[in-house]
């Protein structure tokens, strides 16, 4: 498949040079090339992703009973119920926002600091990177959930340490004030993926910039703020957008740690968990779940849009494109 594509690309590329002078044709050529390059995704989107997505949008205006397959148009009923008639919904919103807005900045901060620390070519950074990345590959398996609960349980490690330093033992997982913090901590603990992306980004910063700065007598901190940070902004931007999306969608961790209930008192009832409960529970109305999901999409899109709009003020690309 790929070799065919490659051939096509080079053939069209040859044509290009002969017509490059004529603007209109150039534009048409670019269109062709552009769509050719994005065609893998576009075909996949139109063929595999669009139908489920469009279906879920349509379903959000219906009462859809998965089991009987019965669909009934209810207009805005689902949205009305969500906003005015469902106390659990707002608790889910609150828990999700709290989680996202605390864990994302912390996670990114850690990831950036550690990446910067482990970027310089010291001899054992590879090993250290492995150590810091390791928590991120354990994911949300049952074993991790058990381990996490064990550490924060009434007689677990954290409480042992608390007693050691003269503090009182706390019931982290069952306490309505603290439970969500164990999940935030877990998210921050797994900062490996943005760290790795930061590392890849640091790798791309040309060394000459640092050399030139050294000649100018710049210190480590001013190098970081004047070279690293600005040149890393495309990657920071990417990580920010993605981590925000991911944190809004966090499901597995909440699911395995609370057993899928959002306990205690719905303080860890994350949005996608609630979408799942409403879509798949017995007698569930998938239309209601879809409506919630689409509200979420709009909210995340709004946040992402704001970040994108703001990006022209703080993200620097080395190109004149766009």
């Amino acid at each position: 498949m790929t070799s065919v594509l490659q051939k096509d690309v080079s053939k069209v590329g040859l044509d290009k040079r002969t017509v490059a002078q004529k603007g209109k044709k150039h534009w048409r050529h670019n269109n062709l090339m552009g769509y050719l390059f994005i065609s893998p995704w576009l075909i996949g989107f139109l063929g595999l992703t669009l139908i489920p997505i469009a279906t879920s949008l349509a379903l959000s205006f219906t009462h859809y009973d998965i089991l009987s397959g019965h669909v009934e148009w209810t207009g805005l009923e689902n949205f009305k119920r969500m906003f005015y008639d469902d106390p659990r919904y707002w608790r889910a919103v609150r828990a999700t926002f709290k989680f996202a807005f605390i864990s994302v900045p912390l996670k990114l901060l850690f990831a950036l600091l550690v990446a910067d620390l482990l970027y310089n070519a010291r001899r054992f950074v590879g090993v250290y990177r492995a150590i810091y990345y390791a928590p991120s590959i354990v994911g949300g398996s049952v074993a991790v959930a058990v381990m996490w609960r064990q550490i924060f349980s009434g007689r677990g490690l954290v409480n042992d340490l608390m007693l050691e330093v003269g503090l009182e033992r706390k019931l982290w997982l069952g306490d309505i004030k603290y439970a969500i913090w164990t999940l935030i901590l877990m998210a921050v603990w797994q900062f490996g993926s943005p760290m790795l992306i930061f590392l890849a980004g640091l790798k791309q910063i040309p060394n000459e910039y640092y050399e030139a700065a050294s000649i100018d007598g710049a210190g480590a901190i001013s190098k970081f703020t004047r070279i690293t940070l600005p040149l890393l902004t495309p990657v920071i931007f990417f990580n920010l957008v993605m981590q925000l999306i991911f944190s809004f969608m966090t499901f597995t961790q909440a699911y395995v740690v609370s057993g899928g209930t959002g306990k205690p008192l719905d303080t860890t009832l994350f949005y996608s968990l609630y979408v799942y409960i409403r879509s798949f529970g017995v007698g569930a109305n998938m239309g209601y779940g879809s409506a919630m999901a689409w509200v979420m999409l709009v909210v995340i899109a709004a946040f992402t849009g704001v970040i994108f709009l703001s990006s022209r003020f703080w993200v620097f690309y080395d190109t004149t494109e766009n």
């Binding site: 879920s56 969608m249 499901f251 879509s279 779940g289 879809s290 999901a293 995340i300 992402t304």
Partner: peptide
């Protein structure tokens, strides 16, 4: 469009 496909929870796409 591509970005927004990441913003819809997988749970509601599962059945379709």
């Amino acid at each position: 469009v591509m970005l927004s496909t990441m913003m819809l929870p997988a749970q509601v796409q599962l059945i379709p």
